[in-house]
Design a protein around this nucleic acid. Structure first.
Lengths: 197, 197
DNA sequence: ATACTTTTTCACCTCTTGTTGAAAAAGGGG
DNA sequence: CCCCTTTTTCAACAAGAGGTGAAAAAGTAT
């Protein structure tokens, strides 16, 4: 809607359609995955003509790449996790993730998993994001050795929690309150961080 | 290929096209997900006309439902896992999963995750399969209490391992040999089964 | 043999996808 | 004011999707 044949030519300056397209693309891609998202839906969300995708980015693929440049600042997350007793680092990691994901009902996360599963490009970005930025920073700061293996192991616990709680929605974990989740999982995650493997 | 305009009418008896269609559908659906798989590709793999999907099942959705009826016998898996020392049950679970998934390079599993993530029907079946058949049978046999929560927690560890090792392919876990994986993860999984939460 | 049913292929239909090229509107420089 | 570039909409395209109905071939019953 909202496209009752608007005037043709250049729009009055100030409306950055490129940015609007990027925002809309982030929503659609994470919500429906690469294949599921359509250029037309993205353009409609941005209140713009579908042809603009080609004009500004050259195609759907290029728009995807441009849109998926991670806009989150990992610095704040890392700082928040590292601040405190290293023996309770796992607990802080879990609380951080749960607070973010629960806030939006897990819909965005389920969608992100969808993108990761359906598009190799998204999987690669997820790999680099998790591996280098987050766990590549946190794990070396608290783990005694085998940083890469420990980081990957932490990844299994976090990704698995995401799948079971938000995508597959297996009870009772899907509806459990954060405290229960933290109590149950934090010790295992802590072992991956600082325990003996 | 292999469809150089074959003769028209009924094929000589013995070739069960319905079963061929089901087999082809399982491959395509798990390989590309529900949306990614096309009726035409399934028919071609079954060496059959696309219209047969409608004739035998009524449509793509119905074929999906019919194809995803789990063909694996859970009885054997359950028996194999329960046979032995309960304190090492987690190790047997991990070895069972790893042997199945590693055998085919993890491709089928990555594809299954793709279906689960992209189609609510697949997620529901996965939920019922994991919850009722596998963990609903194994966990009550070895866990002292809170069977459902423990089963779901085991699910997080298994699903997370699948995502990290086969879908996202995060190193060094993606290339680690089974022994390393078991040594690292089994204690955590065992805690979910029999430890104190 | 003849008639009937089942199975199969074929030729289309409609819908949606990503993409393209032309034309129209706005802005900027001489 | 006129020209040129940039930005935008529009109409259409080809490719591919799932689905439909009729006709042909094989089997089956009488």
């Amino acid at each position: 809607m909202a496209d009752e044949s608007r005037p043709r030519g250049r729009r009055p300056a100030g409306e950055n359609t490129r940015a609007a397209l990027l925002d809309a693309a982030r929503v659609e891609f994470t919500e429906r995955g690469f294949d599921g998202a359509t250029v037309r839906a993205i353009a409609q969300r941005a209140e713009v003509d579908p042809a603009m995708v080609n004009h500004w980015f050259g195609g759907k693929e290029a728009l995807f790449v441009a849109a998926m440049e991670i806009p989150v600042d990992p610095e704040k997350i890392v700082h928040r996790i590292l601040d405190g007793d290293p023996a309770r680092c796992a607990e802080r990691i879990l609380r951080t993730f749960l607070s973010v994901w629960d806030a939006e009902g897990g819909g965005a996360l389920a969608a992100l998993m969808r993108s990761v599963a359906s598009h190799e490009g998204a999987a690669r970005m997820m790999r680099e994001f998790l591996g280098q930025l987050i766990f590549g920073r946190v794990v070396p700061a608290v783990a005694p050795d085998q940083h890469e293996l420990r980081a990957a192991l932490c990844g299994t616990q976090i990704a698995g929690l995401a799948m079971i709680r938000y995508v597959i929605r297996l009870e009772p974990l899907a509806s459990a309150d954060p405290d229960t989740v933290v109590t149950a999982i934090a010790p295992n995650l802590q072992r991956y961080l600082t325990g003996v493997l």
